[in-house]
């Protein structure tokens, strides 16, 4: 007993000194070599795709691994910004379609979702367990497994206007948006509920003592506190919509004016596509850059926001 009492401070003092001094130079060199190797594997594909994008467009497949290739040019970027695929649609129009889907679906899901999330997190009512199980069951099924019924159902909404021509919900951005929300809304509810569960209840109890009702508690306390979670859930929904592929590719086949960035990417890499690699690389960079930058800098909040929703289940 006595020996541990004496040994303990001495041991901790030793530990302190070793952490301040750090490892020896040889060990530091070994650690740095390992870290640099990992870094190389991480950034290699990014550097590679960038260097390929600098090749002149007449080169369908670059042959070397130079970071700055011979005859480096930004022609590929000019090309994809103007007309990325054989279809008559520009990069800007593709981006606008992707943006409409991404913003529309994420905003609708978050706004509707936060009301339901509040009810599930804070209110006790009959049927709560059944409804929550229902949402969980829907969440379990990947989006692609709802492709068949949504295709058939949305396809059955057809209106023939006398002059304007016919409108098919399935082939429209609205139809795709609805299909995406069908999976995104349950996710938003669940993710937001997970976050609301972590907000301490003291504030609401104090408000209740002051006579605040359910609505006031929600508007004055819960909603302001859950802004970060709304932003994160909205951003995750935005990314899902920005890169959505199952519904857009299955539903929008015929209507070129509704095509999105993801569909253009698919058209560039498909089996019969003959897109020069520089054009593909430039397109991939332009497509990935906006969400990647946001994600990179907001990474800490996003992963923690996601972890809460995912793990709290």
């Amino acid at each position: 007993m006595a020996t541990t009492a004496i040994a303990r401070p001495r041991a901790s003092r030793w530990a302190l000194r070793s952490s301040r001094g750090g490892p020896g130079l040889l060990r530091q060199a070994g650690l740095q070599a390992l870290c640099l190797f990992v870094l190389l594997t991480v950034v290699f594909p990014v550097i590679w795709v960038f260097s390929v994008s600098l090749n002149p467009l007449n080169l369908s497949k670059p042959q070397g691994l130079e970071i700055i290739p011979p005859n480096a040019t930004f022609d590929a970027y000019a090309q994809v910004l103007n007309k990325p695929t054989a279809n008559p649609i520009s990069f800007l129009e593709l981006t606008l379609n992707s943006l409409k889907i991404a913003i529309g679906t994420s905003v609708v899901s978050v706004i509707i979702g936060v009301f339901a999330a509040y009810a599930f997190s804070r209110l006790r009512f009959r049927g709560r367990a059944v409804l929550m199980l229902m949402i969980l069951a829907v969440l379990m099924l990947p989006n692609v497994a709802t492709l068949a019924p949504l295709f058939v159902l949305l396809n059955s909404v057809k209106i023939d206007w006398p002059i304007l021509g016919s409108f098919n919900l399935r082939q429209s951005l609205l139809g795709v948006g609805l299909a995406i929300i069908s999976g995104l809304l349950p996710f938003a509810i669940w993710n937001l509920k997970g976050y609301l569960d972590t907000i301490p209840k003291d504030l609401e109890e104090a408000a209740a003592v002051d006579g605040a009702g359910v609505n006031q508690t929600f508007l004055r306390i819960i909603l302001p506190l859950s802004m970060p979670a709304l932003a994160v859930t909205g951003f995750l929904g935005f990314i899902a919509g920005w890169t959505e592929f199952y519904f857009t590719s299955t539903f929008l086949s015929g209507t070129v004016q509704n095509h999105t960035l993801a569909l253009a990417l698919n058209a560039m890499v498909g089996q019969f596509a003959a897109t020069p690699w520089p054009a593909f690389s430039a397109f991939a960079i332009l497509f990935a850059l906006p969400p990647a930058i946001v994600y990179f800098f907001a990474q800490r909040w996003i992963t923690s926001g996601l972890a809460i929703g995912a793990v709290k289940g």
Binding site: F115, Y118, L150, A179, L185, F218
Partner: peptide
């Protein structure tokens, strides 16, 4: 009653585009 009111929008939407399709 408040709880059901809060759930109505979500379940109205999900009823049409999630649960009915399933």
């Amino acid at each position: 009653r408040a709880a059901y009111l809060y759930l109505v929008p979500a379940f109205l939407v999900m009823g049409v585009i999630t649960i009915y399709p399933l």
